[in-house]
Amino acid sequence: MIDVRNLDVRFGQGAGALHAVRDVSFSVAQGESFGLVGESGSGKSTVLRVLAGLNPRWTGQAALAGMPLGPRDAPLPRLVQMVFQDPYASLHPRHTVDRALSEPLEIQGIGDVGPRVERALADVGLGPAFRFRYPNQLSGGQRQRVAIARALMLEPKVLLLDEPTSALDVSVQAEILNLLRRLRRAHGLTLLLVSHNLAVIAHMCDRLAVMNRGAIVEEMDVATLRRQEPREAYTRQLLLASRGYDRDVAAGIVTYD
């Protein structure tokens, strides 16, 4: 479903250029859930933005459902949608929930707007009472539910999730993750999930790739992650760090390049 070969992304030019993604290759089968893990700045979100069509400058090959993507192509709304990290920034502050959810339908010329919006709200566990509220009348978790509903309005095959829970309370995180699992089953979605949280990845994904400094360090399945048996030293370090702060671990941290 998702096929990425030798993806390279650079920002800027000359001495100040940033090589954000280096020669990244991976593929995700239909209906699979794939995780990208790494520290901040490891380039994982950039990979998502390339697949979404939001990042015009890249080289290499990428294909979604067999459709090759070009660096300057417009996004493919009915094939791929994205849920962003910060639900406080991903909803237009002056548009009601109703408007946010009906606009994709209007743009794509799909009728039957009212019932579809109500169904989408019910699908993410929000009642009809939420339909005409503004984002400032919603909590973080509710906003993220609206953002998920919006991403699913056009019934895409691929859903890109950019740290969908990291801006939320711990109690709400679990709700959103369970919602995403349920929606994935119900809609037969292929998920590509970016996170720095290994527990989230372990809960959500079948396979994952660990990224460091723009490159994929290693790919493994979730069973390997659960057994804590990574191949690479960098991943081992990431696993140790994910257990929480430990003075010995912190002292022993090495920079891998």
Partner: peptide
């Protein structure tokens, strides 16, 4: 802002 990215994604 992300909401502009989101509406671009919707075509």
């Amino acid at each position: 802002q992300d909401y502009i990215a989101a509406i671009r994604l919707q075509g």
